[in-house]
């Protein structure tokens, strides 16, 4: 997806950028609001009885069993449930659907956002972000943000799974 396509994905008819902010372990990920299918309570989480221990549990959405992933600050996979996760966000893009455990999920409408590619010197192709961004918050203060998408997170999770299978 080009930068312009990504930007357009966030733009709505009001010419503002509609994003969701996923907070956990002290980090905040900005994702397109259109990729949030639903937000579920942690009480919907059922334990993982599969052999795949990359996800922490499952939830059922539209009759489909979805894996629920839980990440640390460095976005390594947690294998046991931390105390500070209260919500499951279900992300969807085309046929990709999965859930992440978050501390908090909020929506924001941003009037100005500037996307930047990841700096060349740090882009080791493992970073689960599409862009970094500069935006103005509700108080018109410049902020730094980390932008990702359902596709990007799904690819990242698949890489982690392949890596853990090799171990």
């Amino acid at each position: 997806m080009t930068d312009l396509q990504f930007k357009n994905k966030l733009l709505r008819d009001d010419a503002k950028y509609h994003v969701s902010i996923l907070s956990f372990a002290g980090i905040k990920l900005i994702v397109p609001q259109s990729e949030i299918l639903s937000i579920e309570s942690i009480y919907e989480l059922e334990s993982n009885e599969d052999n795949d221990n990359n996800y922490i549990g499952v939830i059922y959405k539209q009759g489909i069993k979805l894996p629920v992933y839980c990440f640390s600050k460095s976005m390594d996979i947690y294998k046991s449930l931390p105390e500070d996760r209260f919500q499951c966000v279900v992300l969807q893009h085309e046929n990709i659907m999965f859930s992440l455990l978050c501390y908090e999920i909020s929506n924001a409408v941003i009037s100005e956002i500037e996307f930047h590619n990841l700096p060349v010197c740090m882009n080791n192709k493992r970073i689960p972000l599409t862009h970094l961004c500069l935006y103005k918050d509700a108080e018109n203060i410049n902020k730094l943000g980390m932008v990702t998408s359902a596709v990007c997170l799904n690819e990242y999770i698949n890489k982690l799974k392949r890596h853990s299978m090799k171990l």
Partner: peptide, 24 residues
């Protein structure tokens, strides 16, 4: 702002003069 999975020697960025600056 720590960037997840970035190399240990360059794992942060800072906002300076409206620029996103990687820090080594």
């Amino acid at each position: 702002m720590g960037i997840p999975q970035a190399p240990d020697y360059c794992k942060d960025v800072v906002l300076w003069n409206n620029n996103i600056v990687p820090v080594m």
